[in-house]
Amino acid sequence: MQQAQAEERPAARPSHTAGHVTGVQVVEAEKPTSGLGAVGGAVVGGLLGNQIGSGNGRILGTVAGAAAGGFGGNYAEKKLNTNKSYRVSVKMDDGTRRTFTYQNPPGVEVGQRVHLERGVLVTG
C-alpha cells in the first residue's frame, strides 16, 4: 500500500509590487504670481473706469476700475499658473499602502488591479 505524500509547497508570499488602487486624487498647487496679471488688470480697469462720469465721478471710476481690474487680473493669473498632479493610493497584496504621484493623468481607477513595472503603475 502506497501512501500519497502531499507535496509541501512554501506559501506564496504576498507581493509588494502588485495590488489594488484605493484612491486617485487630483492635487492643485498655486505657483507664485508675477504681479503682471494685477498690473495689467489695473491698467485695463483704470482705462475703463475713466470712461465713467466726469470730474470727481471720473476719478472715482478710474480708482474703482483700477482696483477691481487689479484684483481680477491677479485672480486670473493665479488660476492660469496652477500645477496639477495626481496622487494614486494603492493597497499592495502584502498589506502595505503606497502612494504614487504623477504629473499627467495616471490612467488608473479605484478598484483596478495594478503592478509596478520600472517604477510605473501598470494595469493588469
Rank of each mutant, 00 (worst) to 15 (best):
M1F: 10
M1C: 08
M1E: 13
Q2V: 12
Q2S: 12
A4W: 11
A4G: 12
A4P: 13
E8H: 13
E8I: 13
E8R: 13
R9M: 11
P10W: 04
P10A: 14
A11D: 11
A11M: 14
A12V: 14
A12W: 04
S15E: 05
H16N: 13
H16P: 07
H16E: 10
H16V: 04
T17C: 04
T17V: 14
A18Q: 10
G19T: 04
V21R: 00
T22R: 05
G23P: 01
Q25H: 06
Q25S: 07
Q25C: 04
Q25F: 05
A29Q: 13
E30Y: 09
T33E: 08
S34N: 10
V39E: 01
V39I: 14
G40M: 04
G41M: 06
G41C: 09
G41I: 05
G41K: 03
G41Q: 04
A42L: 02
A42F: 01
V43G: 02
V44R: 02
G45Q: 06
G46H: 06
L47Q: 08
G49Q: 03
I52M: 15
I52H: 11
I52E: 06
G53P: 07
G55P: 04
N56P: 15
N56F: 14
G57K: 12
R58L: 09
R58H: 08
I59N: 15
I59T: 15
I59S: 15
L60M: 14
L60E: 14
L60T: 14
G61P: 05
V63Q: 07
A64F: 13
G65P: 03
G65W: 03
G65A: 10
A66F: 08
A67Q: 02
A67P: 03
A67S: 14
A67M: 14
G70C: 05
G72L: 15
G73K: 01
N74R: 10
N74S: 12
Y75W: 15
Y75D: 12
A76S: 08
A76H: 00
E77L: 08
E77H: 09
K78W: 03
K79W: 07
L80G: 10
N81P: 03
N81R: 15
K84F: 00
Y86A: 06
Y86M: 06
Y86L: 08
R87T: 02
V88P: 01
V88G: 01
V90M: 03
K91D: 05
K91L: 11
K91R: 15
K91M: 09
K91P: 00
K91F: 01
M92N: 11
M92S: 07
D93E: 15
D93A: 09
D93L: 01
G95H: 03
T96S: 15
R97V: 07
R98G: 02
R98W: 01
T101P: 00
N104V: 11
N104S: 12
N104G: 00
P105H: 06
P106Q: 08
P106T: 09
G107M: 06
V108T: 01
V108N: 00
V108R: 00
V108Q: 00
E109K: 13
G111D: 05
Q112F: 04
Q112W: 05
Q112H: 12
R113W: 05
H115S: 13
H115G: 06
H115M: 07
H115Q: 09
L116G: 04
L116H: 05
E117P: 00
E117K: 11
E117N: 09
R118L: 11
G119I: 04
V120Y: 05
V120G: 02
V122L: 09
T123C: 02
T123M: 02
